[in-house]
Amino acid sequence: MNKTIPPIVFNGVSLYFNNRAALDDVTLEFQRGKTTAVIGSSGSGKSLVLKCAAGLIFPDEGIIAYEGTSIASMKETLYQQMQARTGFHFQDAALWANKSLGENLSLPLLSTNPDYTDSDLKNKVDESFASVGLKLDPSLRPASISMGQRKLVSFLRATITRPEILFLDDPLAFMDREGSRQLIAEIEQFRDDGATIIIATHDSTLIKTMADQIMVLTHGRLSASGSYQDVLPLLRELV
């Protein structure tokens, strides 16, 4: 890993849905070890930027480079290594409905290390639940817990392998005050440990307290970027 180059770079990235540009010629860089907030009104393309950056969606035009290598032309092994070093927290949790909560957390661990024993996995899952104060039976299915709890479990799934890059898509959506507090504390921990964090959010507190860099999207285009003070006038309109 070359630490002098930004971990993720967008170069002229466009993405179309039904001939409409959902992302339009986006060029940007996410800085290593920094927290970047991607903001914009609903439908501006925040989630798409995160998904493209994480290699979950490939753009129709332009290049997205991870550690200097285009994600679209990456070899399968390198792509898997990239995914092992990143974590994605989905807006709607996206837990695997037909798997237990324990299995939802075990699978990323097994993906990075197939040699984990069942007892290793159980310990890791228990530790993970305890870290955010979740007192849940790991054998439960996602459908039997609240949306806020699902979001917490989804966060744990994204972070259980201690990724270097963390993508958080509207992390505080559907969360109550206590859940939000726990989640913010966990994100801060990751930031303090030097992780690169990219957050799509509407939450002004999260933006103000966490973001080193803010990127503003308007109708799929990057309309502004900079520090909190730089984009403050725009923030008042957007969040």
């Binding site: 290594q81 995914q83 409905a97 799934r157």
Partner: peptide
């Protein structure tokens, strides 16, 4: 039906995101 619903609920993307 099951796989289609999993696409809709982003479960497929979740698999990709953990390297599977």
């Amino acid at each position: 039906t099951e796989l289609g619903n999993m696409v809709v609920s982003h479960e497929m993307e979740a698999y990709l995101s953990v390297g599977i």
